[in-house]
């Protein structure tokens, strides 16, 4: 697979193995396996919406499965429909016939499956005291394929390492722009030299299966799987004495407080956040105090203008736009 990322081309991508394809509905499984390897590796998402066409999203666009020929087409006309049976079978596969074991996941709206792949789900929300307690009538699925792109983090290295050593950086991007892929590779690069601790709340970064990372996250990297970020950061600092903490998708207020606690212990941090513009991001309550205290040395914004993981803009700790250094990759890493 070739992506233009940060002005350079990446090679690598998702490995379509039996474990991953087994989760797909039968018709999707056949189509994906019949594709050439290069195209397989471009697969980003499979979306099932009950009684609507099954959608396959590749790096180069959205495709549908032609009903009669079972080949890919960019037109939704005559496309294969996600029947209630297909949706039900898929839900059984994902939940292992045991939705009650996924109560917490159903509250959050996604399930992480082995290999670090994430299945987003929606249906009818059941509320109790104004809070979502459960999802019923689950009819929409989004299977997000986790990808391992070695080299995806190289472009961030000049910002993580400088003359003062490791730096705190925040990677900001809308969904599907490669945030998790980038920090996974950063963990691998930095984790081959320094002690790195990943707090993998959604089991997406390391894709742990029974506690063992399924992705290469570095020789010296420790992973705390499925633990809330705020709690996990302090746990890792106390127990594993890391040089660098990595957390994905900050969102709750307590995450911000935990970051303040963590960085003042002397540990460095790489975090990601959903967002697309600096003006929007600075208004988010979670970031206000972190910006005021200049905790992060750099805010790196990603987009998909040249493929997932393209560095669009970089701001320093005073939110001044700085020039993107493309070529300065640390040889030590």
């Amino acid at each position: 697979m070739l992506h233009k990322i940060g002005g350079k081309r990446w090679t690598g991508g998702v490995i379509i193995n039996q474990q991953l394809v087994a989760i797909f509905p039968e018709v999707v499984r056949h189509v994906i396996l019949s594709l050439e390897k290069g195209k397989q590796q471009q697969l980003e998402e499979v979306r099932l919406r009950q009684l609507r066409p099954i959608e396959l999203i590749f790096t180069d666009g959205v495709f549908y499965i032609k009903q009669d020929q079972r080949i890919l087409s960019q037109s939704p006309i005559d496309a294969m429909i996600a029947t209630p049976e297909i949706c039900q079978r898929f839900l059984n596969l994902v939940s292992q016939h045991s939705l009650y074991t996924l109560e917490e996941e159903l509250q959050k709206g996604y399930i992480t499956i082995s290999g670090g792949h994430r299945v987003g789900i929606t249906g009818k929300a059941i509320l109790q005291d104004g809070k979502v307690t459960h999802l019923r009538d689950i009819t929409h699925f989004n299977i997000r394929v986790a990808r391992e792109v070695k080299g995806a983090g190289q472009h961030f290295i000049p910002y993580i390492y400088n003359k003062d050593g490791l730096q705190n950086i925040m990677i900001v991007a809308p969904p599907q722009c490669g945030k998790t892929t980038c920090i996974r590779d950063l963990a691998r690069i930095v984790g081959n030299h320094h002690k790195v601790a990943i707090i993998d709340e959604r089991s997406e970064i390391a894709g742990c299966l029974h506690g063992v990372p399924q992705f290469d996250v570095g020789l010296r990297t420790d992973v705390l799987d499925a633990c809330p970020k705020a709690e996990g950061m302090m746990m890792m600092i106390r127990s594993m004495s890391p040089d660098l903490l990595i957390v994905d998708e900050l969102g709750r207020e307590e995450d911000g407080r935990a970051i303040q606690e963590a960085v003042y212990t002397g540990v460095r941090l790489i975090a990601t956040l959903h967002g697309s513009r600096i003006t929007d991001v600075t208004k988010r309550p979670i970031l206000r105090s972190l910006i005021a205290e200049r905790i992060f040395s750099y805010y790196i914004f990603l987009d998909r203008s040249k493929g997932p993981g393209t560095i669009s803009t970089i701001y320093d700790n005073q939110l001044q736009k700085i020039e993107y250094v493309q070529t300065m990759v640390s040889q030590s890493c």
Binding site: S95, H97, S98, L99, T133
Partner: peptide, 10 residues
């Protein structure tokens, strides 16, 4: 109904 709903319902 087994496996199709939350714990309380089960």
């Amino acid at each position: 109904v087994l496996g199709r709903s939350d714990r309380l319902d089960q």
